[in-house]
Design a protein around this nucleic acid. Structure first.
Length: 449
RNA sequence: GCGAUCGUAGCUCAGUGGUUAGAGCAUCCGGUUGUGGUCCGGAGGGUCGUGGGUUCGAUCCCCAUCGGUCGCCCCA
C-alpha cells in the first residue's frame, strides 16, 4: 500500500472477481423474477439534473441536503447543475413522463439494476458508490398491487437463501394530508417538552418529527408512548387499504411485522411503506425498502399517477449471503489446460485452444516459454480438469497427450481425436455454448428490444 | 456532518528510539535431460500510509493529513 500513486476514491470499491460471483448471481435472480412477473428493464441515466432529485426526493431529506453527489459544472455552455443518481425512482418517473408512458396499458411495470451514488461517510453497508435493484409499478393503486410487488422482493430473497435472515416491516402512513396533520400534531405535542429531549431529538422536532417515533433515545421513547398516534390521523379508506394489504400478504404466506413506527426518510411516500430488516438483531438495518408514492408524478410535472416501488442494496444483500454461508455458483472453472513445448507445438496449440473455446470448452493455455513443470503447476492452480500436452515429438507423430488431472493418468491419442475425446469426457450437456442467433430465434416478444 | 479506532511485504500479522525491518501464506524459479497437486531449496517483493515536528538519530514519540474499520445521523 505504501507508495501507491493511485487508489480508488474514498468509499468506492473495486468489485473483485470473488464478489462479482455474488453480484452476477443476484442480478440473475432479479432478472429472472422480473421476467416472470412481466417487468421490463429500464436504465435511467446515471446522472440527471440536480433539481429532479431535489424535487423528487424532497429538499429537506438527508439524501438531498448532504448526500447528493454533484457532477459537471454550471458554466458557459451548460446552464444546468447535475448530480449522480442517489436512487432510481426519480429518474424512472421522469422517464415515464418524458416518454408518455401514461399512454401504455397500465400499470407500467419497470425494473432496473445498477450503481447509485451518495456522498456520505462510508461504513459497514454504506458506500459512496453502491448498487441497487429497483422495481416500480406505475399507474395503478390497489393493495393487491402492493402485495404482489412485495412478493417479488420476497421471492428474490428466497432465491438468494436469505429470507430467514430478514423480516418485513410494514406500515401505512396514510394520505399526504393525513400525514401532514399528524406531523403538525406531533410538533404541537412535543412543543413544550423539548427540554426533556436529548439534543438530537430536539432538532428533529423541527426538521423531521416523524423520526422521533423510531428514536433510539430512551427519554424520547417514553414521550412517544403518550404522543398522538399516526393511526388516529389515517383515514378509514387508508386503514381499509392497509388491512386489505396485510390480508393479501398473509394469503401469499409472507411473514411481516406491523410497525407503527416505520417511517421512511423520503418525502414522496404515502400509504404503504415497508422495509426488510435484519431479523436477528431486529434493528433498523435495512437491506431494502419501498412504498407507495401516488403524488410523485405530479410533483415532477406529470399527471396524477399512483405508483409503488421498492429498491434493495446489492452490497447489503451480498453481505447477508456471505454471512449465511450461501455460495454463489461458480461457472468459471477451467475444463482444459493446454501445455506446449517448442515453436511448432505452440503454433498447433494456438489453433487448438481457439477451437476448444468455440466449442464451449473453458480453455486456458500457457503459450509462453515456461518449462513443462511450470505449465503443469499452472494447470494445477487453475484446477483444470484435463490437460492437453504437445511437444516436438507429438507434432512429428501427429499426436497429443491427454491427461486427466484428477486421476493423474494420461494417454497418447491422435491429434484429431483430441477435441472429440475431450467433449466426450466433459459431456456434451456441460459445454458452455452460446449463440446470439439462436437466442434471437427464441424471442417471442418482438416488442422487447 | 459528529465521535471512536486502526494504518509494517499481495494477504494475515510479529517487532524495535540507533548498524542491511521479520514470519507464515501467496508469487516466481529450481530439485539432472518434456509433466502438476506433497516434500526440499532458492529468488523477487516494504523508503514500516503521507507530510511536518521533537531528537545526535524515528517505522516506533507528538501534530496534521489521507485512507480503512466501527458507531451516531440517515439510509441501500
Amino acid at each position: 500500500m505504501a507508495e501507491l500513486k493511485y487508489r480508488s476514491p474514498k468509499g468506492v470499491h473495486d468489485i473483485l472477481p470473488g464478489d462479482n460471483q455474488y453480484m452476477t448471481y443476484i442480478k440473475k435472480a432479479v432478472r429472472h423474477r422480473a421476467r416472470q412477473a412481466g417487468y421490463k428493464r429500464i436504465d435511467p441515466p446515471i446522472f440527471e439534473e440536480r433539481a429532479l432529485y431535489e424535487r423528487g426526493i424532497g429538499e429537506h431529506t438527508d439524501i438531498v441536503e448532504k448526500e447528493l453527489f454533484g457532477v459537471g459544472r454550471k458554466g458557459a455552455d451548460e446552464q444546468l447543475d447535475y448530480a449522480l443518481r442517489p436512487e432510481f425512482t426519480a429518474g424512472i418517473c421522469r422517464s415515464y413522463i418524458q416518454h408518455g408512458m401514461a399512454e401504455l396499458p397500465q400499470p407500467v411495470e419497470l425494473y432496473s439494476i445498477g450503481p447509485c451514488f451518495r456522498y456520505d461517510r462510508p461504513q459497514k453497508g454504506r458506500y459512496r458508490q453502491f448498487h441497487q435493484f429497483d422495481f416500480e409499478v406505475l399507474g395503478l393503486s390497489d393493495p393487491s398491487i402492493d402485495a404482489q410487488l412485495i412478493q417479488v422482493a420476497w421471492k428474490i430473497l428466497g432465491d438468494l437463501s436469505i429470507q430467514d435472515r430478514l423480516r418485513l416491516q410494514i406500515n401505512n402512513i396514510g394520505a399526504a394530508e393525513d400525514r401532514k396533520a399528524f406531523v403538525d400534531a406531533l410538533r404541537e405535542y412535543f412543543a413544550g417538552k423539548e427540554r426533556n429531549l436529548p439534543e438530537i431529538d430536539r432538532k428533529r422536532v423541527a426538521s423531521n418529527p416523524l423520526r422521533l417515533l423510531d428514536s433510539k433515545e430512551e427519554d424520547t421513547q417514553i414521550l412517544v408512548k403518550m404522543a398522538p398516534k399516526l393511526s388516529q390521523f389515517v383515514s378509514k379508506e387508508s386503514q381499509k387499504y392497509h388491512s386489505d394489504l396485510l390480508e393479501y400478504l398473509t394469503e401469499l404466506g409472507i411473514p411481516f411485522t406491523s410497525n407503527e413506527g416505520l417511517v421512511r426518510g423520503l418525502d414522496y411516500y404515502n400509504q404503504t411503506v415497508f422495509e426488510f430488516w435484519d431479523s436477528s438483531t431486529g434493528a433498523q438495518n435495512a437491506v431494502g425498502g419501498g412504498g407507495r408514492f401516488d403524488y410523485l408524478m405530479e410533483q415532477l410535472g406529470g399527471k396524477h399517477t399512483p405508483a409503488v416501488g421498492f429498491a434493495m442494496g446489492m452490497e447489503r444483500v451480498m453481505w447477508h449471503m456471505q454471512e449465511a454461508g450461501v455460495e454463489a455458483p461458480f461457472k468459471d472453472q477451467v475444463d482444459v489446460f493446454v501445455a506446449q513445448l517448442g515453436p511448432e507445438a505452440k503454433k498447433k496449440c494456438l489453433r487448438l485452444v481457439s477451437d476448444l473455446r468455440d466449442l464451449g470448452i473453458h480453455t486456458v493455455g500457457a503459450l509462453g516459454e515456461a518449462s513443462l513443470k511450470s505449465q503443469m503447476r499452472l494447470a494445477d492452480r487453475f484446477q483444470a480438469r484435463y490437460c492437453i500436452l504437445m511437444g516436438q515429438m507429438e507434432v512429428k507423430e501427429g499426436t497429443a497427450i491427454l491427461r486427466d488431472m484428477h486421476a493423474g493418468k494420461q494417454k497418447q491419442i491422435k491429434f484429431e481425436k483430441a477435441i472429440p475425446e475431450v467433449i466426450k469426457l466433459i459431456g456434451k450437456q456441460n459445454l458452455d455454448t452460446y449463440s446470439i442467433k439462436d437466442k434471437l430465434g427464441d424471442f417471442r416478444d418482438p416488442g422487447e428490444g
